[in-house]
Nucleic acid binder design. Sequence first.
DNA 1: ATTACATATGAGAAGCATCTCATATGAGAA
DNA 2: TTCTCATATGAGATGCTTCTCATATGTAAT
Lengths: 195, 195
Amino acid sequence: MPKDTFYNLSEEKKKRIFDAAVQEFSTRRFSDASLNQIVKAAKIPWGSFYQYFNDKEDLYLYIVEEISKDMHQIIGAFNPNASFFETIIQRAEGTLKIGKMRPEYTRLGALTVIDNSEFMLQLLRASNEKYIEIIERDKKRGMIKPEIDSDVVAKMIYIFIFNEYLYSGFDEARYLNKVEGAVQILKQGIAVHQD
Amino acid sequence: MPKDTFYNLSEEKKKRIFDAAVQEFSTRRFSDASLNQIVKAAKIPWGSFYQYFNDKEDLYLYIVEEISKDMHQIIGAFNPNASFFETIIQRAEGTLKIGKMRPEYTRLGALTVIDNSEFMLQLLRASNEKYIEIIERDKKRGMIKPEIDSDVVAKMIYIFIFNEYLYSGFDEARYLNKVEGAVQILKQGIAVHQD
DNA sequence: ATTACATATGAGAAGCATCTCATATGAGAA
DNA sequence: TTCTCATATGAGATGCTTCTCATATGTAAT
């Protein structure tokens, strides 16, 4: 947690520090990111940094927290009645929106997720839980086969849309097309029915 | 490429260096791995290291190369006539075999792949190409719906089995069960058919 | 004006990294 | 034996990092 001294700073100075940190943490992963660069870019003296934050991790967690707040505001609430399949598409669209409005958040997110496997695990688990709930609900609604392993479905699609975004998300049309393709495959399967 | 001096070394000494490097590179990613640790563990003097290798990367590439050779020998050849679905299962079994026989290779592989996104991209592309070929062949065999996007299928399953292994591969039965579940879903889809 | 206190400042301590280089060693050839 | 040359060796050069601390500054209260 940043110290009081940090919160007492002018908005302008806080923003300078935030921007410098986002810039650095979206370019290099946590362990490679250099406080040197950050204090230089933020134009604050070395000593001041430690008046504001306990250490590098303190700053990092603050940044992640702020970004998370900002992202929720940008994406807005999901439609709670959307089917699992619709939810996937909505989520992909939300990801694209963030990527467009705050590309640096996307880069930082990608670095965070590949850097800290424990963090990634938590993120995966949390997302998975949400998806599983929606799948279970749709099973009750009679929209999804009840014998299916919800965990597997959730992971297949979540990991797919995540990876596909990292590696082709810059091409929005293509990305949405691929996600829709994946949803179709989930829905219908790929085997030729011989019955 | 290691220097001649390295190849002239006794097998015992080469193995000592190999083992020390695998140990370090399977514990910390490339940029965090410490040559200090490696020369200490391998019991070679600092100066000698630079008689054998040009730099850290030189050693690293050598290790990856050796591991790759060793792994191919362990897994052996795939059955070329197996269906796409069977190939997936075989691949998962191969991964488990490596994880059992050379757990340190798996750890090193995981670190490499998350460390170097360019390397990961290459790996993904190469694997994807192979899967796509098999899928296309099975389309011609009349086993897979021809209108399906092969690229999406390949990625969905490949990324799934990869991630699932990283996060639950230690429980072999569970892992194979999940992979089989994923294959079933791919085959049949998850939507309740209303026709 | 004086005191008190929060904040600002940057030089440098301390630690760790990779890599170099001058010198030592030891085995085979002349 | 003496010379040659590949190899061995480790101290330390150099450069990066995070983080500390003694001192300066500015602001508000007395």
